[in-house]
Design a protein around this nucleic acid. Structure first.
Length: 426
RNA sequence: GGUGGGGUACCGAAGCGGUCAAACGGGGCAGACUGUAAAUCUGUUGGCAUAGCCUUCGGAGGUUCGAAUCCUCCCCCCACCA
């Protein structure tokens, strides 16, 4: 079996590691942790690299431990932030932690006998920690001089406008304390994270050494970028979430299908478990016959299956075929309802479509496909609007009951990818 | 506190009495080309309506037939000085 570090290296996932990690990991199965901030009810693609980090750790025989920052989430990490963060309420943090747990279960095996994944919440120890104890046992080991030299803190200190609160300033101490607690309670000796976590991780390692005389280690992953310079994990609709309620399997799948060539192979290494040989094969295919987009397909398939299961993947693929293979003519209304379950929809009473029907521009504005009737009109004039996949060239077009497929649905589309299903209700 | 320069649509930035719903660039949205890619090219980008109308240029007033443009007061930024 290849070592965890070699696996990371082969996948370009190794940004940096503290000295001696390789030997430490080779010595015995270890417990490795990564922290997740419960700032939202769902994780998004930005957390996918760390998650895969834990997946690889488990596959390599180590015990992955996901730490949800129920306590630290109440504080806020200044790393990478230019402004003070919104504080979460305890209830929100707890709720969000539950959601994160459910999502991680798709990736990590919490049941295997040998090295089941674990999950902890730092609220368990931070919640009851007394300030005096904290200052005496933990704070004592931190030099303010060093803390102020931290890049994340320095930037905020130099910025007169935002500044940094004592609360966020203390974040590094709390994260370090987490490591110490996990070292004590779980025998956890390795912390991983994004490269922005390097400072917090090494601070934790120092703390473990000072307080317990123990040796701990850190590994950080590179920041995921994309070729066009936009933020990875954002789609037109905003963040791509792992929660199917927030980002449907179809849109999740589509995000990956639409990854540009320059990024596809790298993402295959980051986000799938495909063996190197297969990745090479896909890279060659991408170079030789890019129009097939074999790499993107494999990527979308693998990642969607892992998160949303066979059912979610099947639904996404079905919708994709229906939407992009051209005609929906052959589809029965029932199939349409099924395929477009994922697509935004609204209802309109049949009476509203009787006689003259309703102006298409009105419908477009109402469904949100266009921002106003004027916008809708311009879109039609520009040739970007389709009813039941047939382009509309008349801005005065009205939608009547006759347009509804089997009298039940009208499929509106703007551009290549924005659909809206209008259900006719009687 | 003093002096000077600014605040214009999603962002940057022109305009400095009528021809301004406001140049230009970026971004967004569509179209063409493709591969549901990138790059490129084209169109479009306040609202409502058929020509036309309505609401916009930091805020409030005023001058004028007419103001983003001139005047007064207020608010906020930036530079230099204290």
């Amino acid at each position: 079996m290849t070592s965890l570090l070699d696996e990371f290296r082969a996948r370009d996932l190794l940004q940096d590691a503290t000295e001696g990690v390789a030997e430490h990991l080779a010595g015995a199965p270890r417990t490795i942790y990564i922290g997740f901030d419960p700032t939202a009810a769902s994780l998004h693609l930005g957390s996918l690299v760390p998650i895969m980090g834990l997946v690889h750790a488990q596959r390599a025989g180590h015990t992955p431990l996901a730490l949800v920052g129920g306590g630290t989430g109440l504080i806020g990490d200044p790393s990478g932030k230019t402004a003070e963060r919104q504080l979460l309420t305890r209830e929100m943090a707890a709720e969000n932690a539950d959601g994160i747990r459910r999502q991680l279960e798709h990736f990590l095996d919490f049941e295997v006998k040998t090295n089941p994944a674990r999950m902890r919440n730092n609220l368990d120890w931070l919640g009851s920690l007394s300030l005096v104890d904290f200052l005496r046992d933990i704070g004592k080991h931190f030099s303010v001089n060093q803390l102020m030299a931290k890049e994340s803190v320095k930037r905020r200190l130099e910025n007169e406008d935002s500044g940094i609160s004592y609360t966020e300033f203390s974040y590094a101490l709390l994260q370090s304390y987490d490591f110490l607690e996990l070292y004590r309670r779980e025998g956890c000796t390795v912390q991983m994270g994004g490269s922005d976590q390097w400072g917090n991780i090494t601070a934790g390692i120092d703390l473990v050494r000072r307080v317990e005389g123990g040796r701990a280690f850190g590994v950080v992953f590179p920041l995921v970028t994309n070729a066009s310079g936009t933020k990875f994990g954002k789609s037109e609709a905003g963040n791509v979430w792992l929660d199917p309620e927030l980002t449907s399997p179809f849109r999740f799948y589509q995000y990956w299908i639409n990854v540009q060539d320059e990024d596809a192979v790298r993402y295959l290494r980051y986000f799938t478990l495909l063996p190197a040989a297969r990745v090479t094969e896909l890279a060659e295919s991408l170079a030789a016959e890019p129009q097939r987009r074999a790499a993107q397909r494999a990527l979308a398939e693998d990642v969607t299956r892992r998160l949303h299961g066979e059912t979610g993947l099947a639904a996404a693929e079905r919708a994709t075929r229906a939407l992009f293979s051209g005609d929906i003519e052959g589809l029965a209304a029932d199939e349409i309802a099924d395929v477009f379950a994922d697509v935004p929809s609204s209802e309109v009473p049949a009476t509203g479509l009787a006689g003259e029907g309703r102006p298409l521009v009105e419908l477009l504005a109402e469904t949100g496909l266009a921002s106003s009737k004027g916008d809708a009109r311009r879109a039609i004039e520009g040739g970007g609007v389709y009813v039941n996949n047939a382009r509309v060239d008349d801005a005065a077009r009205a939608i009547t009951v006759d347009d509804a497929i089997e009298g039940r649905f009208v499929l509106l589309r703007k551009g290549k990818k924005s659909y809206h299903l209008v259900a006719v209700v009687r």
